[in-house]
Simulated assay, not measured.
Amino acid sequence: MKTLHLYVVRHGKTYFNRYNKLQGWGNSPLVASGIQDAHQAGQKLSQVHFKAAYCSDTTRAMDTAKIILEENKNSREISLITDAKFREEFYGSFEGTNMDAAWTSAGAPVGLRTYSEIVDKYDVDKTKDLLKEADPWHDAENSEEFWQRVLAGFKRILTNPVLDDGDNVLLISHGNSLISLADRFGEGKIAVHERPANGSISQMELSKDGLTILTYNNEPVKD
Rank of each mutant, 00 (worst) to 15 (best):
G92M: 04
T215W: 11
R76V: 07
S116H: 14
S79H: 11
D135N: 14
V31W: 00
E77V: 09
K128Q: 09
A32P: 03
Y122T: 06
V9C: 09
N98D: 15
A108R: 06
M1Q: 12
E77P: 06
D63E: 15
I118R: 11
Q36T: 04
S56R: 01
P161I: 06
E71V: 02
D139R: 11
D165E: 03
D209R: 05
T104A: 15
Y91N: 02
K73I: 02
W103T: 01
E117I: 08
H5R: 15
K13I: 03
K13T: 06
A191I: 08
T159E: 14
D120G: 03
A101I: 13
H174K: 09
I190G: 06
C55S: 14
Q36P: 01
A140H: 04
I118S: 10
G166Y: 11
L45Y: 00
L80C: 04
L22V: 06
K13E: 15
Q23T: 10
K51F: 00
Q40Y: 12
I179R: 10
R184H: 14
K208M: 08
N74R: 15
A106W: 02
K73A: 08
M99E: 13
A152I: 01
L131H: 01
L214V: 11
T97C: 14
N20S: 07
S207E: 03
K44P: 01
R195H: 07
G92Q: 02
E144Y: 05
E141V: 11
K128I: 05
S33E: 15
G34L: 14
L6C: 01
D63A: 15
S79W: 07
A101R: 04
N217F: 00
T59K: 07
M62G: 01
Q47K: 10
L163T: 06
Y91D: 00
L206Y: 02
I213H: 08
F90H: 05
G175Y: 10
H11S: 09
A65R: 12
F154P: 07
L4N: 09
Q148D: 07
D165V: 04
F154V: 01
K121S: 06
P136L: 00
E141R: 10
D223N: 15
D135I: 13
Q148P: 00
G186D: 01
E205D: 12
A84E: 15
A38Q: 13
L170S: 01
E141K: 10
T97D: 14
D37H: 08
F16G: 02
A65F: 13
Y54M: 01
E187C: 09
S207K: 04
D183L: 06
N20I: 04
S75L: 08
M62C: 03
V150Y: 12
L181T: 03
E88T: 04
H49M: 04
Y19I: 10
G199R: 04
L178Q: 10
G34C: 14
H11Y: 04
I179M: 07
A32H: 02
G186R: 03
A191H: 10
H49P: 03
N198K: 08
D135A: 14
P109V: 06
L206V: 02
E117Y: 10
M62P: 01
N198G: 10
D209P: 00
D83S: 09
V162H: 13
G26E: 11
V48W: 02
L6R: 00
P136Q: 03
Y15D: 13
I179V: 09
L206F: 02
L112R: 14
I172P: 12
G188E: 11
N98V: 08
A38M: 10
G12A: 11
P29A: 12
W137V: 08
V169D: 09
I78S: 03
K85D: 12
D57T: 08
D135T: 13
